[in-house]
Amino acid sequence: MKLSDVKAILQAEVICGAEHLDQEAITVCGADLMSDVLAFSKEKTLLLTGLTNVQVIRTAEMGDLVGIVFVRGKRPGPEVIDMARDNGIPLMVTEYPLFESCGLLYSQGSFKGPRLAMTSDV
């Protein structure tokens, strides 16, 4: 599913990387443990997380993730946004909590890859 569809389903606001919203997410991973993301996610995965630090961006960079959605309306600081912009990683923020965000995408989205759900902060 395209990131623009994710934006619509989660009623998300795009923080940066609006030019990348035509990219395809093959699956979604909801997690706050970055090592789990690095261990189990595939490239072109969309990450849903409640963490907003620089390690989230680094994890997306190293793991070739397609984008990040911050849940529960959490917003990263400017240095985190700059790092994402430098690496061409689109960032969005949704007011939905992680559980609902995953549920909405799971029930309404169409994904080509395996569906992964991990540690959540519901």
């Binding site: 789990d36 690095l38 261990a39 963490l51 630090n53 390690q55």
Partner: peptide
Amino acid sequence: IREMGFGAGMGLPNMTR
């Protein structure tokens, strides 16, 4: 460290994988 998303005991296993 766990609050930053690390320290879950996956680092070394990830490296071997």
